[in-house]
Simulated scan of single mutants.
Amino acid sequence: MRKDVNPYYSGPISDHFDGVRFFNPGGFPPRGLAHLIRWQLGGRRVQWPAHYQSPFHQAKPDLAVAGDRLRVTMVGHATLLIQVAGVNILTDPVWSGRASPFAFAGPRRRNAPGILMDDLPPIDVVLVTHNHYDHLDLKTLDALHAGHEPHIVTPLGNDTIIRRAVPGARISVMDWGDRLNLEDGIVVHAEPCHHWSARRTSDRRMALWAAFVLETPAGKIYHIGDTGFHGGTNYRSARRKHGAFRLANLPFGCYEPRWFMEGQHQNPEEAVMGMLACGAGHVAGHHWGTFRLTNEGIEEPLRALEAALEKAGIEADRFRALRPGEVYDVPLAPAA
């Protein structure tokens, strides 16, 4: 691939696209190969157990949730089932055994998916935030298309990747700031987050990454698949534009070492600061305990989150660190 050719997206230059690659305005790009080698050879990686079983049984969700109810069921990592206003939404669905381009190598699951794919309710919408393998799993998307034919919503360029593997998929592609009207009074907004993208070494930042805001009859939801904290800039922007949120789905794991991960993965303390900055009444915490991607131990995010919540004076039940199979019925009003 020529370095000056983007295989996924062609469009006008913008404040976050230079004609070939996307970037984080006022932020910084991912670390390079030399830094990656330094991290990999630097040691200090805490071992994980071969299996990290969830205390919850695999869930069997209701067909739908209506009225003012809002329910989130954890599948694993960044895969959540959101049920609201009679609509079933999956985020970054990954049912595969590894978050990798290979079936025989790469980060493997340490716990079973919290919902069997055969036990899913009818899936109406799938949100894919970016193209890293722990968020965009083509095998899973193909299976979901075969069984549910959902409406896939994803940022610029990712549609090209998905269509190559799932040619019949119904896909809406969004840039930051775009608005998409879905069925049953649900509106999707694509918003900035501080991250990057790649499927291989030659296509870095050639597809866009995004957070999503969902306007629903039961309240607003802020969903982030992956982000660096970036001084809280994007959190504050989302609050100014959309107001407070009934629920924010926030990543809080996969963050060590900080010198390498700071720009792409926030830590628990930063996730709590993000909760406050965006005005979230409640948080479904994800991106921990399923795939070992970084240096920290499997339960270190839990201890760091507990300390961060105590420091901020926030009740622990307002920020739920979800485990596979766990069902979270989100309270209607933000906690005082």
Rank of each mutant, 00 (worst) to 15 (best):
R110F: 04
R110A: 00
R110V: 01
G114F: 07
L116R: 15
L116F: 15
M117Y: 07
P122V: 10
I123N: 06
V125M: 03
L127H: 08
T129A: 13
T129R: 12
Y133W: 14
Y133S: 11
L141D: 06
L141G: 05
L144Q: 07
H145Q: 05
H148A: 03
H148Y: 09
P150V: 10
I152G: 03
I152K: 02
V153D: 00
V153Y: 00
P155F: 07
L156Y: 08
N158V: 04
I162C: 00
R163W: 09
R164C: 14
P167M: 10
P167D: 11
G168R: 11
A169H: 03
R170M: 13
S172A: 12
V173K: 07
M174S: 10
E183Q: 11
I186C: 12
V187T: 11
V188Q: 04
C193I: 10
C193W: 05
H195V: 07
W196S: 04
R199Y: 08
T201R: 09
S202K: 08
S202C: 10
S202L: 10
R205V: 02
M206L: 13
A207L: 09
L208A: 04
A210S: 13
A210D: 05
A210F: 02
V213D: 00
E215C: 03
E215Q: 12
A218F: 08
H223W: 13
I224Y: 02
T227A: 12
F229I: 10
H230R: 14
T233G: 11
T233M: 15
Y235W: 15
R236N: 01
R236E: 00
A238P: 10
A238R: 03
R239Q: 12
R239A: 12
R240D: 15
K241I: 11
